[in-house]
Amino acid sequence: MALNKQMSAADVVAQLRSGMTLGIGGWGPRRKPMALVRELLRSDVKDLTVVSYGGPEVGMLCAAGKIRKLIYGFVTMDAIPLEPYFRKAREAGAIEVMELDEGMFEWGLRAAGMRMSFLPTRCGLASDVLRRNPQIKTIASPYEDGEVYVAMPALKLDAALIHVNEADRLGNTLIKSHDPLFDHLFARAADACYVSTEVLHEQLQLDADTAKMNLFERYLVRGVVLAPFGAHPTYSSPDYGWDMDHLKRYDASAREDGGWQKYAEEFVAISEAQYLEKAGGADRLSQLKRPVF
């Protein structure tokens, strides 16, 4: 088969344009496509609308001034609950926000993936989510009950970035983590989905049980990037845990003068290979303990 979607992280970022709406898979500090985000941080792409169950990638993109608008339900690093650079940006009024219930957020992605303009839900009614997002309308059931629902608008994405455990050059992917999260919905909601992967195969040859870990179709995947430890410093179950030492250091940088610049000089303004060395090398990263909940 002639299909070969393998590309570099730089090739992916070359497809992105300032002003785009960009979905980022994962959840908090879990399976974030950090290698792709680092490449984005190295680029001059800006004015992004970022759609994310937010973790440190949101903080980094805020710190680098890449985000014009954030669509989110939360931003957190779990064990470090408050994301420092998100807080700074939010408290400074530096970003426009569309703050949503987690389920509304899911519904928005589903609507986009189904090519619907909206999906109805009770989530958000009677809360300030509607007051703060007057563009979100309600709708009455056309049936006898007449119940009023939130008409959650589709969250259509120009592009989505996702990190997976395994993939092949055709764009087939395996998500082996305990929780697959909502990455398949990001893939469906996006005009173009780019995945980074821990392991890249020529072509996947699977047994039936493993094939169940293929959660979305390769026709959704525009590009595949080989990025071992590409979720670092977030948790890529079952391969490696989050890097709490690194996250603490990142968190502490936010309280130093010029802290982001120093962090970025050390961990962003270098190649991905240099990054992995700086982060402790493959031996250390593969030993990162899985978090105990």
């Binding site: 339900g73 939360f74 807080r87 939010r90 408290e91 703050e99 219930d101 987690e102 009770r122 809360s127």
Partner: peptide, 19 residues
């Protein structure tokens, strides 16, 4: 738009509380 303290976000609270 310019809160004194930003915490996490509304998370799942709107949906949990109404369901």
């Amino acid at each position: 738009d310019k809160p004194k303290t930003a915490i996490l976000g509304v998370r799942g609270l709107p949906g949990n509380s109404i369901n």
